[in-house]
């Protein structure tokens, strides 16, 4: 892969909450079409990394290069807020707790992002990777609705379009949340422990949607998860987080079968 293929480049990233250092020095590159699974113990900083990438957390140090912009943390001037907002237009985020909007139906949830965009914003979007309706340049509600219905269909929830989230199971809610993120035609998807809040029997349906996204659409993804089966099957690369740094990274084969670090081995033995 060439340098041009880099979609997200995290360099020397540091993050502290007061005295507490969560990220010490993190470098990571995500290439076009690549799926990286980030794993490690709770509190190792993996979620914080993901949240720093779209500036839901403000990095203490280092730079993040995403969607053609290089950004650092620090005081948010008006200009910086706008830059961050543009980064977010290109990065779809899926949360552990779904965070669907409870006052809106599934369909309205999926439409909510595009509907909030101004006309100029819509032109900033990337081309959709899913081969579905493209909402760029078109500002009508009907186009946005067609795309939203299409995405709900892709996550297998076309029949739930008019239900409010409270009527959906956790797995269904998370699939709606994935469709909501996809509605913005993101260049990259960020998954923050997407199955950790789910009952065991509901995990499979969410992972299936994510797998489809990765294998059929080549969506670049940063996935924080404990699902090692998913990692083995889907990930191109895995990064083991330990005490605020990436201790080891490599292909699933390298990580599972040729583990270099004892910490990684200990963690894998504990979860497998």
């Amino acid at each position: 892969m060439t340098a041009d293929d880099v979609l997200v480049r995290v360099s020397g990233l540091q993050k502290s909450f007061g005295e507490h250092v969560v990220l010490r020095d993190v470098d990571l590159e995500l290439h076009r079409g690549e799926v990286i699974v980030i794993f490690g113990r709770s509190g190792s900083g993996k979620s914080t990394l993901l949240r720093c990438v779209n500036f839901l957390e403000d990095p203490t140090g280092g730079t993040i290069e995403i969607a053609g912009q290089t950004l650092t943390g620090g005081h948010r001037t008006r200009r910086k807020r706008e830059q961050i907002r543009r980064v977010r237009l290109h990065a779809g985020m899926v949360f552990q707790q779904f965070y669907l909007f409870p006052h809106l139906t599934a369909l309205q949830n999926v439409m909510s992002g595009p509907l909030a965009l101004g006309r100029a914003d819509r032109r900033l979007l990337s081309a959709p990777v899913d081969g579905s309706v493209d909402i760029r340049g078109r500002s009508d509600r009907a186009t946005i609705k067609r795309r939203a219905l299409d995405l709900l269909d892709q996550v297998g929830l076309a029949d739930k379009a008019d239900q409010h989230p409270i009527r959906l199971s956790g797995g269904q809610q998370q699939r709606v949340a994935i469709a909501r993120a996809l509605a913005m035609q993101p260049e990259v998807m960020l998954f923050d422990e997407p199955t950790s809040a789910l009952d065991p029997e509901l995990i499979g349906e969410v992972l299936a949607v994510m797998k489809k996204l990765a294998t059929e659409m080549n969506m670049p993804m940063l996935v924080v998860t404990h699902e090692m089966g998913f990692a083995r099957e889907v990930a191109h690369r895995m990064a083991f987080f330990h005490e605020g740094v990436i201790l080891e990274q490599g292909t699933p084969d390298e990580i599972f079968n040729h583990t270099k670090e004892t910490e990684t081995r200990r963690f894998l033995d504990a979860v497998l």
Partner: peptide
Amino acid sequence: VAHGQGEAADALGMRYVAKMRRVVLPQ
């Protein structure tokens, strides 16, 4: 309104006014 609601709106690239009008105030 739960903190995550605002974060979800932020993550969708909503501006402050859109976030308030579409997500936070209705709730």
